[in-house]
């Protein structure tokens, strides 16, 4: 473990709880893409499929359970408690293409043709594109009551810190995983596009709204 990865994981955890706090405080899920949240739940389940069979450390075990539980809770809240605040008309990104594309990428790029490795690779590729439904929704509406700049910032820190983590591990641990690294860099680029859209549509947009 290194500080980059610990910081990244904690920022990731904070981003999930910022979103949950916002939804429950506002009693609304307006402006949040349930498709992206569903994709994240799929990412965690497939990524942590061996959470009970392969022991890495207590930290890893606890964090995996928290990520799975909090993402399912978010989807559950959006689909049940705050369903009335959802507007499915604007959450229209076809996630079947993201899931299909991730399956293809996993079939091509994997470390071993075993079930666990294929599922792990699928999860890595899916995570890199999971934010796209949210990005397209934000681009269309420009409204983001619940997608706050803190959420996006925490998400960005998570992704950004993983890159120095990989550099650190490559130098000091002689550890390098090209799948995680390539998909992680793609994800970081998509997240930076997300910030740009947020800045253009929400931050600047807000200024024009004020009388």
């Amino acid at each position: 473990m290194n500080l980059f990865r610990l910081g990244g994981d904690l920022a990731h955890l904070v981003s999930i709880f910022i979103l949950l706090q916002k939804i429950t405080a506002n009693k609304s899920a307006a402006g949040i893409s349930i498709k992206t949240q569903i994709l994240y739940s799929i990412v965690y389940v497939t990524r942590y499929i061996d959470v009970f069979t392969k022991w890495i450390s207590l930290y890893t075990f606890v964090m995996k359970l928290i990520f799975i539980a909090s993402s399912f809770y978010t989807v559950w809240l959006m689909h049940n408690t705050y369903k009335s605040t959802q507007n499915p008309q604007i959450d229209t990104f076809k996630i079947r293409y993201l899931i299909g594309g991730s399956i293809i990428m996993a079939a091509i790029f994997n470390h071993k043709l075993t079930f666990n490795e294929l599922v792990w690779s699928f999860s890595i590729w899916l995570e890199s594109v999971a934010i796209l439904p949210q990005l397209f929704m934000l681009q269309r509406t420009g409204e983001a009551e619940n997608i706050t700049v803190h959420y996006i910032f925490a998400l960005g820190i998570y992704r950004a810190l993983y890159i120095p983590n990989w550099v650190y591990r490559w130098i000091f641990d002689q550890y390098f995983d090209y799948i995680a690294t390539v998909a992680g860099i793609i994800q970081t680029l998509i997240y930076s596009d997300f910030f740009y859209v947020y800045y253009q549509r929400v931050m600047k947009g807000k200024k024009f709204e004020l009388p």
């Binding site: 450390s57 890893t60 995996k64 983590n165 995983d177 995680a180």
Partner: peptide
């Protein structure tokens, strides 16, 4: 043979 990287990251 390329050693399988242990997936110890979240």
């Amino acid at each position: 043979a390329q050693t399988l990287p242990v997936h110890d990251e979240l």
